[in-house]
Amino acid sequence: MSVYSTSQFKNGLKILLDGDPYTIVENQEVKPGKGQAFNRVKIKNLKNGRTIEKTFKSGEKVDAADVMEKDMQYLYTDGEFYHFMDPETYEQFEAAKEAVEDCIKWLKEEDICTVVLWNNSPLTVEPPNFVELKITETDPGLRGDTSGGGGKPATLETGAVVQVPLFVPEGEIIKVDTRSGEYVGRVKK
């Protein structure tokens, strides 16, 4: 297994700590004039998303986490697992429910998304920043109201529910920002 020295610490570096993979969010070196130097880091647990603070003696070695990101195509779910494919190698990966929890509501089959692999199995899946999805259910809006003042919930083809302006009808394809979950606009097809 490869290791990193604290002198290689930088934001985004993936390390293994107590068996869990972490990414470094912030790295600060602290050195008293006449004393031991330390690296104080904020690290995010890639399994549960929680950020914690740890301090290492400068010069210490820390195990690297074999974590990488790959663009993959979402294929289908068999009810238990979610299947993705690397479009370059055609290699297929199956992800557990926990790995896709936050993003599956934005994905429809054949969409490209970012899969974070840890020891070659999907750890988390990130949807594209913007997705275009069809509204499958929403209350009829008020005719002629294009002010966008009010809003109403709309269910999309993937099951996600977003707030849309009153004038947007069922059957319309809309663009959504997956980071905020907010409606961006209608897509003219």
Partner: peptide
């Protein structure tokens, strides 16, 4: 939040 081998007294005070 210290992570690593035990520190000697001086390093721990640092």
């Amino acid at each position: 939040g210290y992570h690593g081998e035990p520190l000697d007294r001086t390093a721990a005070l640092d």
